[in-house]
Design a protein around this nucleic acid. Structure first.
Length: 551
DNA sequence: TTGGAAGGCGCC
DNA sequence: AAAGGGCGCCTTCCAA
């Protein structure tokens, strides 16, 4: 019933494959077949395919109408195992893993990015070094052994299995695409930005706003040059540190309003304007190129197109096909609920057992009904707030939810002391010295602390957030896998995923079943990931024709 | 010409 | 209320 096979493509379109024992050893003869797609399609009894890389194989299967139930993605799992072993950043290709097993020189990974807009993502697809099939089998067996050495082997197995499942889902979502109306998008752009000068030039509205800014200063000022803007304000008697919106809005000057509006529209023009539409939307679909586990914390990224940063105002262009609907579902206040589950704080779990407004419930417990204060305190604890009311409120939070606050405080201390932290399922933070810490630690205003101490603090804020954000990503993978499972046999398709939100495109008559599937996937994921806890991972679900109507 | 850093802002 | 976590993308600026 749990039948697993290893498979590898050959250059001529064929494949080599073999049945496997549970310990990864071959359970029969290695066979060669002339057609990879047929080899998979003719073995529906196989419940898990072990392969080097889903990106290498699965798009081809999907293009030929073949779906698989589960897979084990060797290179993705190698990355997770290396991370757990404190070796994040070492090459994770099958060739590298094989080289480490044999003591040969370890080849570096091929670069991750650089795909053409609109094409399928292609991790390791182009330049991956070939590995003998036997090497693949050996690496697999060794990975099974390394799972056993993990801090929590069962959780580690769940992690690699669910992220492998994420790989399948990513490929399926990219194949389906997010329904996108180019006409609606163009109409929206014209409403917001006006006609373009000469048909393809700068939009009229941007020109007008730039003129208003200049008029307010009494001289020509280019709003997209921060240095120019700062100089102009200085001459007008305002000493600003930056031209960030929140700082601009603290002063009273006639240039502020048109400037802020200009920035907003300029951003839409450059990031999601006509050229974006041309590059990224084809045949009524936007295909972002999802990359599961693309960030160290396990959140997904997209391979170009800014797929996870679609501005709210642009969502008007996401339109269901005729007779179809979009079921838009997002997990309510996910991160505090995750914190409840991982810290096992009884009071916070009690609060999180209610699907209703969590911040309201916290404020009833600890902030005499002040929801805003409660929200600041909770988010401050998760993010590592360093100043302001959050600190004062943190004391209150600590009193009522001691285990929850201690959990993130411990993670912060671990980071400050240079130790690793892990998500619930075992995804592990990068060691200090990872390129990330240089990037993270620049910046903030000079404190009265030596550089080293400031860096340690910043790294502590990172590890503090890592355990919550990353465990949320753990949960999301299992939720997606469960949801995919319950959608099999239906016409409904998963078409979008963004951290704590999913969109399913389905025929109108399937919407009740889809809505049920989401809540049950959420419950399943909660128990599978964290075991039995009272925590409720509530979803708010909206059935709409247009994404912009979802909230 | 190209590549990286910095400024800024979109999403969660 | 303050500017704390994770990202991507576009721009300008500057050095190679």
């Amino acid at each position: 019933m749990d039948e697993r096979w290893a498979i590898a493509p050959e250059e001529d379109g064929g494949a080599v494959l073999v049945a496997l024992h549970p310990d990864g050893q071959p359970a029969g003869e290695i066979v060669r077949e002339p057609d990879l797609v047929a080899a998979v399609a003719s073995r529906p009894q196989v419940t898990r395919w072990v392969w080097r890389s889903s990106a290498e194989i699965y798009p081809r299967l999907l293009a030929n109408g073949v779906r698989v139930e589960r897979c084990y993605d060797l290179e993705n799992s190698e990355g997770l195992l290396l991370g757990h072993e404190g070796r994040l950043g070492e090459p994770r290709s099958a060739a590298a893993a094989w080289a480490r097993l044999t003591g040969a020189p370890v080849p570096p990974d091929p670069p991750l990015r650089g795909v053409v807009p609109g094409e399928q993502s292609s991790l390791f697809e182009v330049t991956a070094e070939p590995v003998p099939f036997e090497a693949l089998l050996r690496v697999y067996a060794d990975q099974l052994r390394r799972h056993q050495l993990a801090e929590y082997p069962d959780r580690m197995r769940l992690l690699t299995a669910s992220e492998s499942s994420g790989m399948l889902i990513a490929a399926e979502m990219d194949r389906a695409g997010l329904p996108w109306s180019a006409d609606a998008h163009r109409q929206l752009l014209t409403e917001l930005l006006g006609d373009r000068f000469g048909g393809t030039g700068e939009p009229r509205r941007l020109t007008e706003l730039a003129d208003e800014v200049s008029a307010a200063f009494g001289r020509r000022v280019r709003p997209d040059l921060p240095a120019d803007v700062l100089k102009a304000f200085k001459q007008a008697g305002y000493q600003l540190k930056s031209t960030r919106r929140w700082e601009l809005e603290t002063i009273d000057h006639p240039a502020v309003a048109p400037l802020v509006e200009y920035k907003k529209l300029y951003r839409i023009y450059t990031a999601n304007g006509w050229s974006w539409l041309h590059d990224w939307v084809h045949d009524g679909r936007f295909r972002p190129g999802f990359v599961p586990g693309g960030t160290v914390s396990g959140r997904w990224i997209t391979n170009g197109g800014g797929g996870l940063q679609i501005p709210k105002v642009i969502r008007r262009a996401v339109v269901a096909d005729p007779g179809w609907r979009l079921v838009v579902a997002d997990a309510s206040q996910l991160e505090p609920r995750i914190l409840a589950a991982i810290s096992r704080d009884p009071a916070l779990m009690e609060v999180a057992s209610d699907p209703g407004d969590l911040y309201k419930a916290v404020s009833d417990q600890a902030f005499s009904g002040d929801r805003a204060q409660a929200k600041i305190a909770v988010l401050g604890a998760i993010y590592g707030q360093t100043s302001g009311d959050g600190l004062k409120n943190l004391a209150m939070l600590r009193k009522r939810f001691p285990l929850a606050v201690a959990y993130v405080d411990d993670a912060a201390r671990a980071g400050e002391e240079g130790r690793l932290v892990r998500t619930w399922l075992g995804r592990t933070s990068p060691p200090t010295g990872h390129p990330l810490d240089e990037a993270t630690l620049e910046g903030p205003p000079a404190e009265d602390l030596p550089t080293d101490a400031r860096k340690a603090r910043a790294w502590g804020r990172f590890t503090r957030n890592f355990v919550v954000q990353g465990s949320a990503a753990d949960w999301a993978l299992l939720m997606l896998a469960a949801l995919r499972q319950s959608l099999t046999g239906m016409k409904a398709e998963l078409v979008f995923f963004q951290h704590d939100e999913v969109i399913i495109h389905c025929p109108a008559d399937e919407t009740p079943a889809v809505t049920n599937a989401i809540q049950s996937a959420s419950n399943t994921a909660g128990t599978l990931t964290f075991g039995q806890t009272p925590t409720n991972f509530a979803f708010t679900t909206a059935t709409v024709d247009n994404y912009a109507d979802a909230k």
